[in-house]
């Protein structure tokens, strides 16, 4: 029985990131946004985190923003690409998110900015994160999800279908909000909160968007990708379709990035718990100012 092929080529991802590491800072605007958002969210949490991880550290931009936070002690950058890791300025480990080198119950905080959308086994990674955290430890992560790059996906699909009579996978599939919430619960996390931050970015042309993605080291790493070069005619048609469908009045084009934010805790007795059914001290009917009915009976209109 053959092994099912993995979705992403993670070795290729490391190579792509190595190649763009030198200028990674020029293409980190989404991560900077995530960093500011994380700083905001952590500001509202009144506790300290002596040991934290930043999973998928990219060039360390997220940690640079968050190391100034007094409540975080040691923040360790974990990055797949060696060249990216060399750009990080704090304690740093080269590791794959799918093979975390941390023992059980040692961490107080796991941060992750825009990297979990590229793992093959998200449920497995969440379980590994859960185990490496202490009781009452916090996971604060964002990943690209939802309708991210829907315009580019659509343009490639139309153009390839017209020219080749069929489409190949160009833009990775992304998880939706609801799936992420249930995966967090399945991994064992308590109090999971998932929200979406939609960022609309405009570019001078579809090519400029593709250049930016390349600069992020985010070019296609799908194992099922078409491994032959893109012809000039195909690329031209992609740009035409993109302009036609998603062009703006000023000649620029728009691209969607959906950032899925997740906050979840390892269960601890100090966290709020639901009461047992039947232990309420006040009636719901009193609070609503209505007459109480036995269960199953229809309210009269």
């Amino acid at each position: 029985m053959g092994e099912a092929q993995e979705l992403f080529d993670r070795i290729l991802l490391a190579q792509r990131r190595n190649n763009v590491a030198a200028s990674a800072g020029d293409h980190a605007f989404l991560l900077e946004r995530v960093a500011l958002d994380f700083a905001d969210r952590l500001a509202g949490i009144k506790r300290t985190f002596p040991v934290g991880l930043n999973l998928g550290a990219f060039n360390g931009v997220l940690s640079r923003h968050l190391r100034s936070c007094e409540r975080i002690g040691m923040l360790v950058d974990v990055e797949l690409s060696v060249e990216m890791a060399r750009q990080c300025d704090g304690p740093c480990v080269v590791a794959d998110e799918e093979f975390l080198p941390f023992s059980d119950g040692t961490l107080d905080l796991v941060l992750s900015g825009l990297s979990l959308q590229l793992v093959n086994d998200l449920p497995g990674v969440l379980i590994q994160i859960f185990r490496s955290l202490k009781a009452d430890g916090l996971l604060l992560a964002s990943m690209l999800g939802g309708e991210t790059l829907k315009e580019l996906r659509h343009a490639w699909l139309i153009a390839e279908d017209e020219i080749y009579g069929g489409a190949s996978p160009r833009v990775a599939p992304f998880a939706n909000l609801r799936d992420v919430g249930s995966l967090l619960q399945r991994a064992g996390f308590a109090l999971p909160v998932v929200d979406l931050d939609r960022v609309q970015v405009t570019y001078s042309s579809p090519l400029a968007l593709m250049q930016e993605l390349k600069g992020m080291g985010a070019s296609n790493i799908l194992n099922a990708r078409l491994k032959k070069p893109v012809t000039r005619a195909l690329l031209q048609r992609v740009c035409e379709v993109y302009h036609q469908c998603y062009g703006l009045d000023d000649g620029r084009v728009s691209a969607t990035f959906d950032i899925v934010n997740m906050t979840a805790w390892v269960p601890h007795s100090s966290q709020q718990q639901p009461l047992k059914p039947g232990t309420a001290h006040a009636r719901l009917a009193d609070a609503l100012g209505v007459k109480e009915m036995p269960a199953g009976e229809k309210a009269r209109r």
Binding site: V76, F99, F102, S103
Partner: peptide, 14 residues
């Protein structure tokens, strides 16, 4: 950083 070394285990066998 020795504190970093203390945190690490084998990623394959933990």
């Amino acid at each position: 950083d020795p504190k970093l070394l203390e945190l690490l285990v084998c990623p394959l066998t933990k």
